[in-house]
Structures are given as C-alpha cells and as structure tokens.
C-alpha cells in the first residue's frame, strides 16, 4: 500500500555459537527500527543474543522449479554424511 512500512525478515542467534535462524518477519520504517522491533517482538522470552534483519524484497530465493536440479544431486552423495561410515565400536567416539 501507499505508505506501508517495508517488511523485514528477522534472523536470531539463539545462543552463543549457533547460527542465526529465520524466526519470522515484521514491519519497520528502517533497519535500525527493524532491529528494535525484532527485539520487542521476537525475544520476549529471552530467545536471542544477536539479531539480523534483511528487507524482505532484498532476499533472492531459488525458484521452486529448480528444486530438482539444486538439491537432488546432493542426495546421491551419501558419503558426505557421517553415518555413511561404519566405525567399530572399540574405536570410541568419532
């Protein structure tokens, strides 16, 4: 609409050492206010230690049609997953 505040996507680092995770969106006039609003809206229960905001229309996304070509090739590379390898129990944690 004519004067609507832009939409921002909010990413929050829940604990030290974790990645930022998408938690939702909100409206704000600019990035600074988006961060403040995110603090008030998305960390009401101590959920965060760090906040990223990105204006929603700046997010580039893969299109759903590409889902096959983008992701299926990696499905066949099962050796990338640690459970692919059998490690004898005697060896201990690895």
């Amino acid at each position: 609409m004519k004067n609507e505040w832009p939409l921002w996507e909010i990413f929050i680092r829940g604990q030290h050492g974790m990645s930022h995770r998408h938690v939702g969106s909100l409206h704000a006039p600019d990035a600074e206010m988006a961060i403040k609003n995110a603090r008030d809206v998305y960390t009401r229960r101590n959920e965060g230690v760090s906040i990223w905001v990105v204006e929603a229309n700046h997010i580039a996304a893969s299109s759903p049609g590409d889902k096959g070509p983008l992701y299926e090739p990696s499905e066949s590379k099962v050796y990338r997953h640690p459970t692919f390898f059998d490690i004898p129990e005697e060896v201990g944690a690895m």
């Binding site: 505040w5 909100l26 409206h27 704000a28 403040k36 609003n37 008030d40 809206v41 009401r44």
Partner: peptide
Amino acid sequence: VLEEDIALAN
C-alpha cells in the same frame, strides 16, 4: 502499529 503496541507493553 502492532510493533509499537508490543514495544510499549514491554
């Protein structure tokens, strides 16, 4: 606006 409503309550 909703965001302000929530912030004021805080």
